[in-house]
Design a protein around this nucleic acid. Sequence first.
DNA 1: TTGTACGCGTTATCAG
DNA 2: CTGATAACGCGTACAA
Lengths: 348, 348
Amino acid sequence: MRGKVGPATMREVAERAGVALTTVSRAFSNPDKLSPDTLRRIADASAELQYTVNLSARSLRKRSSGMLLVLLPDIGNPFFSLVLKGIEEGAREGGRVLLIGDTGSDATLADAYAGQLDAGTVDGMILIDGRVPFPHGSPARARLMRAPVVALSEHVDDPSIPFVGIDNRAAGRDVAHLLADLGHRRLGHIAGPAANGLTTLREQGFAEGARERGCDLLGTATGDWSIGSGQAAAADILSWPHRPTAIFAANDEMAIGAVHALAAAGVSVPGELSVVGFDDIDFAAVGSPALTTIRQPRFAMGRAAVEAVTARIEGRTTAEPARILPFERVMRASTGPLGSGQTAAGRG
Amino acid sequence: MRGKVGPATMREVAERAGVALTTVSRAFSNPDKLSPDTLRRIADASAELQYTVNLSARSLRKRSSGMLLVLLPDIGNPFFSLVLKGIEEGAREGGRVLLIGDTGSDATLADAYAGQLDAGTVDGMILIDGRVPFPHGSPARARLMRAPVVALSEHVDDPSIPFVGIDNRAAGRDVAHLLADLGHRRLGHIAGPAANGLTTLREQGFAEGARERGCDLLGTATGDWSIGSGQAAAADILSWPHRPTAIFAANDEMAIGAVHALAAAGVSVPGELSVVGFDDIDFAAVGSPALTTIRQPRFAMGRAAVEAVTARIEGRTTAEPARILPFERVMRASTGPLGSGQTAAGRG
DNA sequence: TTGTACGCGTTATCAG
DNA sequence: CTGATAACGCGTACAA
């Protein structure tokens, strides 16, 4: 007498619709090959039973799950929000769903997540944390390399994995040029964490651009992308024997933290010190002063990344090794020409 | 001659380790019940083959997947970042993984995601978008109600679903009291989208608190939680015939937008107008002026929510109908006593 | 166009 | 403590 508990199965739908199990299965994969009448009966039966395909079973059978795994270092970083929206939208259009792994930059954890790909639980993987799971040379790594994987935003050390993102080095150079064009000659940098690929590229580019324009890169303070680390870095910079007239923070959060610390220390921005950020997150536009920054096409990056994995999943050979998207200068109020503000205490 | 392609299976591990398939299975679920020697051989074999359990198969068999589904309206909203971190951490500790569904507040989409729960693809669900999937009274809804589901941050219309979050009405009242204590009597409000439960609660609470202290709530401008909508709302408020001396924005982003628009319009904050936000996102602390706001314990909320679903999943009857966490006033520079700034142009 | 039969990789049950 | 065997729900040759 006890009724069934779980959701309906195909067999139940089949019985109710008066067709064979197979037919129901086909109704969900190859609807075109069924007679309209049969299809309708199945649709009705499914609706009445509120039937949903069991994804575990389908996935076991098809060796594919309709899931995309996204590995990122910190879901709390607002930079990722729009990127994820782009990925989400693209995945949805492709009928796939997102599994998000926040690795906290922990390799063991990342490997654990990646095991899902290896186990066939997910169809493809987007790496936003700059690291390829599994030790180089291991069988698991080898298998990973044959799977649909793309690196987003940050390069990974394996060149055979397609990359989607901007040219970070060029962007770093551009910041130096921008500052040089404003007349600045003494530059400072707030870098991201040392081991990070983005940190390196932006810093190298910045140094290169400075050199090209005959500017002095007075020094580099190291942060960890967070607002707080930007504040600390700014305090550090203020203690340097030779103070720069402009600083470039490798992301907006550190730039915002720096601006805040500078204001607290009574240093006017951009009057005494110009500040440039990176990413153009939403809050960059509404700070005071609003932040000059480099805009990354975050949403488009997300879309491009899904497109790339999807292509590989479906066997389309769009195997471009890299998809470099354009970045963009966004000039706002946190930068000004050299000496603009040194004269007076401020301009009201 | 063609080698196998996919990852190793239990059978292969079993063969290599010289044990039965069943034994390998047990090694991964009940390791305690195996002899150390057997366990070791299986461990070795697994390592050599880089074996990973196939989660689809396990999930099919166990009718549970080790996944938690999180439904949220907008992954781009920084409020969710820390909440998600809390959920993530809790899920991980429980050996579970996160499936994140960004519904964009779209009911159809939410239902599609929720179907996964129904199909047993996910073990539990955390609703952060204030809506229970599936029409009231439908079989699917009925099944959902028996599944481990909790509402986080925003109440849902079904009282039988446990809630985790703060008392938003009380928080709204508190803001009014806070402002009244500073001497303000003419208040304005920037509300969230009309259909939203959070909007209603905070607005009602604010109105209530204002009434209690004999303040006039001059009007309410409606936003959509975004920075831009806060800017627009502020512009609107400036056009009111009677201008308030303090406004409460229902979240920090709108508050930040408002402060920005106010500054652009030459209105000093808090000199001429005090502004209070809600949530205490990271950026609230580093704006200029830094934002007075109500802090929600975002991380703890996430943790509490996983704890609640996990309890239900594991059959522990911690079936509290609600888990109300404390909010906290955070006084910063965007509020000041009435009239503090009306006298002079500013205080250097 | 529709139905039959088998297997995907695991876990649970029951013996040994 | 260990092993054989039967499902779990679905997709896909193959046959009709």
